[in-house]
C-alpha cells in the first residue's frame, strides 16, 4: 500500500517529493552560502542515518539529503533543530519556531557568491546582506528567488533571479596620487565599460554615466589613486527566470542603491505578494506576480515608504525579452493572461 503522505505539507517543511513514493529530499537553507564547516557533520549525519548515504549540493546552495523516508521526517526535524536555531535565528535573526523543521519553502534560499571576504573582484560582503534579507523574507509563504553577487561579474546569476542584487562601488579618484600610467583606463576598457580615458595632462577622465561599478580600476591602480568608498552600492536586476514557459533574463530595476535602500525596498515584497495573490498564498514563482501586477504597480508597491538614497536610480520601465517556448505569448488574448483585475 502506498504510504499516505501530504506532499504539499511536507514540501512547505522543505522536504521535496521524490519519484520514489514515500521518499523525500531535505533541503537545508544556507542564506548567504557561508556557514561554519562544523554543520557539514549535521547534513552528513542526516544523509547517512535517514537517507541512502548520498549528499546533493543544491542548485540554490542548499544542503540536500535525498531519499528520506516520510516516517523518519519527525526524527530528522528534531535532529536538525540546532542547525535551524544557529543559522536562521542566531545568524540571520529570523524569528521562528525551530522544533518542527522549516515552516515554509516558498522564499527560496538566498544565494550569494563568496564576495568581498575572499574574491579579489568583490566589492561587498555578500553574506552579510543575504543574512539581513533572510530576516525580511523568511518565514513567510510567498515565493521569491534572490541572489547576491559581490560584483557585476554576477557569479550569483542575479540575471536569472526574481531579484539579482549586485554589489558595486563608486570609485573615488584622488588626482594627486595618479601617475598617469593608464592601467585603470586599459582595465576598464578590457574588463568593463570603457568609460575612462587619459587627458592631455596625463590624468584620468571618467564618463560617469556608464560606469558599471565593478571596481576594476581600483584593483588595477598601483598608487591607490582610485579607491572604494566605505559606502556600498547595489544594483537590482529584476524578473529573470528559467522555466518551461518563458524564461528570460532580468533587467535593471535599480542602480546605485545603498544597503539601506535595498533592504527597505525588499521589505515590501511580502506585502506586494499578498496583494497580488489576494492574501491566498499559492506556490507560484515571484516573477509571475510581477507580470500579473505589471511593472508600474510593482514599482509603486516596492518603493512605498522607501527613502531612497540620493544616488539611487530606478527604471522608468522594463522591457523584458522572453524566450518564447510557448509560442505567441505576446499575442495571447488579454483574458487568457492571469492579471490583477
Amino acid at each position: 500500500m502506498v504510504e499516505d503522505c501530504n506532499i504539499k505539507k511536507l514540501r512547505n517543511n522543505c522536504f521535496r517529493q521524490s519519484k520514489v513514493p514515500g521518499e523525500f529530499m531535505l533541503q537545508l537553507r544556507v542564506p548567504g552560502a557561508l556557514i561554519d564547516a562544523k554543520w557539514l557533520d549535521v547534513i552528513k549525519h542526516v544523509c547517512q542515518t535517514w537517507g541512502d548515504g548520498t549528499f546533493h549540493l543544491g542548485m540554490r546552495q542548499t544542503l540536500n539529503a535525498p531519499r528520506i523516508k516520510a516516517k523518519d521526517i519527525p526524527a530528522v526535524n528534531e535532529y536538525i533543530q540546532p542547525y535551524l536555531q544557529a543559522v536562521e535565528c542566531d545568524m540571520c535573526d529570523v524569528k521562528m519556531q525551530t522544533k518542527d523543521g522549516y515552516p515554509y519553502i516558498a522564499p527560496r534560499n538566498i544565494m550569494a557568491c563568496i564576495g568581498g571576504i575572499h574574491c579579489i573582484k568583490g566589492n561587498v560582503y555578500t553574506q552579510r546582506l543575504a543574512q539581513k534579507l533572510e530576516k525580511l523574507i523568511y518565514p513567510n509563504p510567498y515565493h521569491i528567488k534572490i541572489s547576491v553577487s559581490g560584483c557585476p561579474n554576477d557569479c550569483g546569476k542575479g540575471h536569472f533571479q526574481d531579484f539579482g542584487i549586485i554589489g558595486c562601488t563608486k570609485p573615488i579618484y584622488t588626482i594627486d596620487r595618479c601617475i598617469g600610467c593608464g592601467a585603470c583606463v586599459r582595465k576598464c576598457e578590457s574588463a568593463a565599460t570603457r568609460v575612462l580615458s587619459l587627458n592631455d595632462k596625463n590624468k584620468v577622465e571618467k564618463d560617469p554615466c556608464c560606469c558599471v561599478g565593478c571596481g576594476e580600476c581600483v584593483t588595477a591602480c598601483p598608487t591607490g589613486a582610485w579607491r572604494r568608498p566605505a559606502k556600498d552600492f547595489y544594483k537590482i536586476i529584476l524578473g529573470g527566470r528559467t522555466g518551461k514557459q518563458y524564461p528570460r533574463m532580468g533587467k535593471m530595476f535599480a542602480n546605485w542603491l545603498t544597503e539601506e535602500s535595498v533592504l527597505s525596498i525588499m521589505k515590501n515584497w511580502p506585502k506586494f505578494s499578498e496583494w497580488v495573490l489576494g492574501g491566498k498564498p499559492i506556490y507560484i514563482h515571484g516573477g509571475h506576480l510581477i507580470d500579473r501586477a505589471g511593472y508600474q504597480r510593482f514599482k509603486d508597491f516596492m518603493l512605498d515608504g522607501v527613502n531612497l538614497n540620493p544616488e539611487a536610480m530606478i527604471a522608468e520601465n522594463i522591457n523584458w525579452a522572453e524566450t518564447e517556448y510557448r509560442s505567441n505569448i505576446h499575442v495571447k488574448p488579454l483574458d487568457k493572461h492571469l492579471s490583477v483585475k
Partner: peptide, 15 residues
C-alpha cells in the same frame, strides 16, 4: 590608516 583605501574590498591602506 585610510579606511577602505586598499586594493581589495574593505581593505584599508596606510599612507
Amino acid at each position: 590608516r585610510i579606511s577602505c583605501g586598499g586594493r581589495y574590498a574593505k581593505d584599508d591602506s596606510i599612507i
